[in-house]
Design a protein around this nucleic acid. Structure first.
Length: 84
DNA sequence: CCTGAGCGG
């Protein structure tokens, strides 16, 4: 199904912050929201997250530019996110 | 202080 303006980001370093991600993804477009998924019990990062963009072409641009690129020593996996 | 496929606080 169509995904909208959010992109799924996998293979994140466990120590990366949402702020770091926001800065990194600003290269590709207008970031409006950054969400790293944390474990509810331990509050530790699960190693993936989501970036929301102002428009769908920015999200698509992020996939094209930042997928399979290095971020803090890891190779990011960037793709259009599924609808919630 | 540890982990490593995947779609959420």
């Amino acid at each position: 199904m169509s995904s909208g303006f959010s992109v799924f980001v996998g293979n994140l370093p466990y120590r990366a912050t949402e702020d770091d991600l926001g800065h990194y993804f600003s290269q590709a477009g207008n970031v409006t929201q950054v969400r790293i998924v944390y474990d509810r019990q331990t509050n530790r990062a699960k190693g993936f997250g989501f970036i929301e963009f102002a428009n769908e072409q920015d999200a698509q641009n992020a996939v094209n530019q930042l997928n399979d690129t290095e971020f803090q020593g890891r190779n990011l996996r960037v793709n259009l996110a599924n609808q919630r």
